[in-house]
Computed example of a mutant assay.
Amino acid sequence: MIKFFPLLFFIFSCSSSKEVTDNSFSVIYKSEMGGTENAGYTLIQNNESYIRFIESLKLDESQYANFLAVDFKKKDVLVLYQGQKNSGGYAIDIESLKNENQTIIIKKKEIMPKKGEITTSVITSPYCIALIPKGKRVVVE
């Protein structure tokens, strides 16, 4: 039994593997116009849904270069909507992302005009499109 102890110790000490989590994200498009009336988000997990979403944006062809081919085996597309606003000066973005046990936790950042700031008098609906790591669940805070 003593002869096997060092071998077992070596096997157990070398076999532990460290889980690598992907905390990277990249915002690929933002706009003050074209979002939804209500605040919220949409998670896109396949190419067919992504193509339908891009076509629904009704953008100029020159803007399509912003939309990359997405490897949906590794990434998902998250669209954050700020909802309809009564003036310009609003925007939405991702402040941070955490990957905890395959739960992707997104902290959003909502930007609004400062009190007294002059803004355009137009109805806006800001949104943001980002590539995020794949996970079993997505939580937006």
Rank of each mutant, 00 (worst) to 15 (best):
E37T: 09
I11P: 02
G40L: 07
S16Y: 15
Q45M: 15
S13Q: 03
F12C: 07
E37S: 15
D22N: 14
F12Y: 13
T42P: 01
M33V: 14
V20T: 07
D22W: 01
K18C: 09
M33R: 13
S26F: 07
F12M: 10
E37D: 11
G34C: 01
I11W: 08
N46G: 01
S31Y: 06
I28A: 04
S15M: 12
F25M: 01
Y41N: 14
N23E: 13
K18V: 12
V27T: 08
F25T: 03
S15E: 05
F25P: 00
T36C: 12
Q45H: 12
T21C: 10
G35Q: 02
A39M: 13
E48F: 15
T42H: 05
A39G: 00
M33W: 13
S49Y: 12
S24I: 15
Y41Q: 03
S31K: 06
V27M: 03
F25D: 01
V27W: 06
S49G: 15
I28S: 00
T21D: 03
V20I: 13
T21Q: 07
D22A: 00
S16P: 08
S26A: 08
S49M: 08
I28F: 07
N38A: 11
S24R: 11
I51F: 05
C14Y: 13
E37I: 14
S16L: 15
I51S: 05
S49I: 04
N46S: 04
F25K: 02
G34V: 01
Y50V: 04
K18G: 09
L43T: 03
M33S: 09
L43P: 00
N47R: 09
T36Y: 10
N47H: 10
I51Y: 05
Y50S: 05
S24P: 06
S24G: 06
C14N: 14
N23C: 04
E19H: 03
K18H: 13
G40K: 02
M33E: 10
N47E: 10
K18Y: 05
Q45E: 14
C14R: 15
K30F: 06
I44L: 03
S31T: 03
N47S: 08
G34F: 01
I44S: 00
E37K: 09
N47A: 07
T42Q: 12
N23K: 14
N38V: 11
N47G: 00
V27L: 00
N23D: 09
G34Y: 02
T21E: 10
S17M: 12
I44N: 00
L43C: 00
I51E: 07
E37P: 04
E48Q: 13
I11R: 05
S26G: 03
F25H: 04
S26I: 11
V20S: 06
N38T: 11
Y41S: 14
N38Q: 11
G35H: 03
S49D: 13
F25G: 01
K30M: 00
E32C: 02
F25Y: 15
D22F: 01
N46H: 00
T21F: 10
F12N: 07
I44C: 01
F25I: 05
